[in-house]
Design a protein around this nucleic acid. Structure first.
Lengths: 190, 190
DNA sequence: AACGATACGGACTGGCCACTCCGGTTGTCC
DNA sequence: GGACAACCGGAGTGGCCAGTCCGTATCGTT
């Protein structure tokens, strides 16, 4: 389906594209999506023209950044899930997803909105994560580590919400840990 | 301090101001803060000039809306807190705050940011709520209804985060209830 | 080394939106 | 009921920003 079948980019073009993605990730994450495109271009050492050639729209750039993050999370989640028994895998992945979306409120919102109004590319990579999460959840429930009545939508909500909590608490590790304890205890049966 | 000491408004001016506030609350809540000011003016049946005379800035309008909501919540919280014993009061107010901020992600973010960079008026009314919450929390902890190690920052984070979860789940009451169960169970000791 | 093809830069355009300004209207007080 | 203030409406202004266009530079190939 997703044919990445284009003729290979020229060396400089590939370099610029990568730099653009890196810079955009950094800037959007730390300063929000309201930052003018021109600033991202300048920070990447290219002109706006170049930016818009690689990403025809600001939205497209944002999407590319998101997809990249989602894919990174999916990969790490898969590793973690394969290497542990159900309960550990579930809670480990929960932490991982939270930590990977650090400083990125809007990213989590996108994950949330993905099932609703996001674009095709986002749909695809967020579906991948959702499938993994569903699997993780089912297995953790089977061994009785997580309340049986919870579904995937609730899990996603919990993830996004917990992410929001962490963002609020900033860099206080003790407080973050206390939140994890509350949420994890709440997730366990009875 | 906060001298509401101005000469009383003319009748029509007062009416317009109130209508503006009502409409702005509605519009900002349902469609986000990105809506053009002119649209709010039109919906309120006045010109933009009138809007900007009452609220010199879009931000000022937003602030007024926030303050109003915060005050409403503070009032209802106080009632509820006075009429129940600690545990019931705490969890009741938790629900109340969540429900009152329904459909208003950005409002909750403001509550959160209030301690950080919001304007004077917001500071004031959010301080009032925070004080109430601190009290509620302390009392619930004294009777052993809530984990002792949690502080006010964690409680605020939990509120905001849970609000985000609810927003995500939309109108599914069963799912919302399941989330409440998870969070409330997590809040209780051990 | 020379020549296409490919990619670059950044001045420019168009649209949107917060905010201003002032001629006209409406409330209020004697 | 008249006169003066207080208020209103909405066309207009300025600034910002996403996206375009084309002359110029760079890459890769023979």
């Amino acid at each position: 389906m997703s044919g990445t079948q284009e003729r290979p980019l020229r060396a400089d073009a590939a370099r610029n594209r990568a730099r653009l993605l890196d810079v955009a990730t950094e800037v959007f994450t730390t300063r929000g999506v309201g930052v003018p495109t021109e600033e991202i271009a300048r920070a990447a050492g290219v002109g706006v023209g170049t930016l818009f050639r690689h990403f025809p729209t600001k939205e497209a750039l944002l999407e590319a950044v998101m997809v990249r993050r989602l894919e990174a999370i999916a990969a790490r989640t898969a590793d973690l899930a394969a290497a542990s028994e159900p309960a550990e895998a579930f809670f480990g992945c929960f932490r991982l997803v939270i930590e990977q979306s650090a400083g990125k409120n809007e990213f989590t919102q996108a994950l949330a909105a993905a099932g609703v109004d996001a674009h095709a590319a986002l749909q695809e990579s967020s579906q991948a994560i959702r499938a993994q999460l569903a699997d993780l959840l089912a297995r953790a429930q089977q061994v009785g580590a997580v309340r049986a009545e919870l579904g995937l939508p609730e899990l996603v909500a919990l993830l996004v919400g917990t992410g929001a909590m962490m963002e609020l608490l900033g860099a206080d590790p003790a407080a973050r840990e206390r939140i994890f304890e509350v949420v994890f205890d709440g997730l366990r049966p009875h």
